[in-house]
Amino acid sequence: MSGELLKLCGVAVLCAMVGLLLAKWQREYSALVRVGGTILVGIALLGGLREGLDAILGLVGAEAVEPYADVMLRALGIALLTRLCGEICRECGAGSVAVGVELAGKISILVLCIPLIREILELANEILRMQET
């Protein structure tokens, strides 16, 4: 992981430097290079996150927590992706698009919670049925 982190940092710094250089001559290419660098870093980040989570699940017993950990990981993934996209849009000067992306991210996370809310309501119904019997 530390080797990969060095590579990641190297790529990120390289993209930033190239973007800075290109900003003087080719502004549009500069933005593309910065966006490309952000995407590469984001993909590497999500991969590392999955690896770390698998290690934790292996320690505590995956069967019991996997469905819930899966939901939590997706929610975090959506949030990080939203953040990255939002920042890219702001860098490109599209602040309103960034706001739209963040809103979409928030709605996606809430939609992700619907199965959990359904499960909780079903258990609440079961408890109420217990009371009636």
Binding site: M72, A75, E102, G105, K106, I109, L112
Partner: peptide
């Protein structure tokens, strides 16, 4: 973003 962070927190607590 506070709103997205809040949504993630809501999701983890619900899970």
């Amino acid at each position: 973003s506070d709103t997205v962070s809040g949504a993630v927190h809501f999701c983890t607590t619900l899970a």
